[in-house]
């Protein structure tokens, strides 16, 4: 560990909290920790102080591959006019049950 800058020598972790059974884990924030076990404990202390969760995930921020803002147009805009991808685009025949 670099004594002069411990802040930079501990990796960053992203924290995901599940509020209750049946819900998904939702990104809550990030923190520094030396390893995964300590990250989980720090997450407990930082993000579930007020009973916000019943389950925690921590993921090393470096291990997340994220889409880039520069690619936003090519990634997401083409979906904008594909209205046929929404179920509401299709007329449901009157005589189809259970749909």
């Amino acid at each position: 560990m670099n004594a002069a800058s411990p802040e930079r020598s501990w990796p960053l972790w992203e924290v995901f909290v599940r509020g209750k059974r049946g819900l998904s884990h939702v990104h809550a924030g990030s923190l520094h920790a030396p390893d995964a076990e300590m990250a989980l404990r720090n997450a407990r202390d930082l993000y579930t102080r007020r009973q916000e969760g019943v389950s925690l995930w921590v993921v090393k921020a470096d291990d997340i591959t994220a889409s880039s803002p520069d690619e936003r147009e090519s990634f997401f805009d083409p979906a904008g006019d594909k209205i046929y991808r929404h179920p509401t685009f299709y007329d449901v025949p009157d005589d189809v049950e259970y749909l």
Binding site: P6, E7, W10, L31, H32, A33, R41, N42, D45, L46, R49
Partner: peptide, 12 residues
């Protein structure tokens, strides 16, 4: 503490 995260842990 060595980190703000540990400040919180010991405070808790």
């Amino acid at each position: 503490a060595p980190q703000i995260e540990e400040d919180m842990a010991l405070g808790n």
